[in-house]
């Protein structure tokens, strides 16, 4: 069984701590929500898992080896607002980017890769729009394209940064459908979500962060008035509405 374990993780930006001493373990085959207020270090946690930023202390293991030796098992969907949507590229080209590393240097995409890309686009309902420039997609459609790109990586661990921000209801439903399918196939899906709306019910497990780990467990263990007060401070009432 491939467990993700984060132990005593501390991350700084120019000496200012963004995450302090965070530890948790996650079993596979579940959809995990990472929640917490703005600036809580949720994106930082994901970037540390991905090796995009240096960690000060802490170990990240996946299965019985360091996560850093198993990058090809991880798929990442960056925050939509951090991408350049005016870039001259199409849905199809973006999805194929998920096959670049497995294709290898100096090679062209194989027929198998193209078939995977087509299947992923069909799964997210974007096959008809595959030739469309990415700048002409709605927020929900953009998010589906990136989900398709993650799917073709055939990873075991999926990390998604705020996939629900600015997407329509239909896309939200579809995203959760796919997440649950992945979990049913034994994958671990970690999803950052910054508010505490009704969707929190959809997660099998939650990680509540605010610079440090406030709580982790199922919804009832995490969403207590006390935890929310510690994470959100005066805004805790906003959480209890969920």
């Amino acid at each position: 069984m491939t467990t993700l374990s984060v132990s005593h993780l501390t991350v700084n930006y120019q000496q200012v701590p963004a995450l302090r001493n965070v530890s948790f373990t996650l079993a596979p085959a579940q959809v995990v929500g990472v929640i917490g207020p703005n600036g809580a270090g949720k994106s930082t946690l994901m970037k540390a898992l991905l090796g995009l930023i240096p960690v000060v202390t802490g170990t990240l293991t996946y299965g019985d080896r360091p996560l850093s030796q198993q990058r090809q098992r991880v798929a990442y969907v960056p925050q939509r607002s951090h991408l350049d949507w005016t870039f001259p590229t199409t849905v199809w080209d973006v999805v194929l980017m998920g096959r670049v590393v497995s294709t290898g240097w100096l090679r062209q995409f194989s027929t198998a890769s193209k078939r995977l890309a087509m299947a992923a686009l069909e799964r997210v309902g974007m096959a008809d729009l595959r030739d469309r420039p990415i700048g002409q997609l709605s927020g929900g459609q953009q998010q589906r394209v990136f989900l398709a790109r993650a799917l073709v990586q055939q990873a075991d661990l999926f990390l998604l940064d705020e996939p629900f921000t600015g997407v329509d209801q239909k896309t939200e439903t579809l995203l959760f459908e796919v997440f649950h399918e992945l979990a049913a196939a034994g994958k671990l899906v970690m999803v950052i979500h910054h508010d505490l709306g009704a969707v929190v019910k959809e997660f099998d497990r939650l990680i509540l962060l605010n610079k440090e780990l406030i709580a982790t467990g199922d919804r009832r263990q995490v969403m207590t008035a006390d935890n929310l007060l510690r994470a959100y401070g005066g805004l805790a009432h906003f959480g209890q509405a969920a």
Binding site: G51, L52, R71, Y76, H82, M97, V100, V101, T103, Q153
Partner: peptide, 22 residues
Amino acid sequence: ILLYKELLFFSFDPQGAEAAGL
């Protein structure tokens, strides 16, 4: 020509490319 697909991925989404292992 030889680095086309890698340079495209890197130019469009540098963090995604790095996370993927480029």
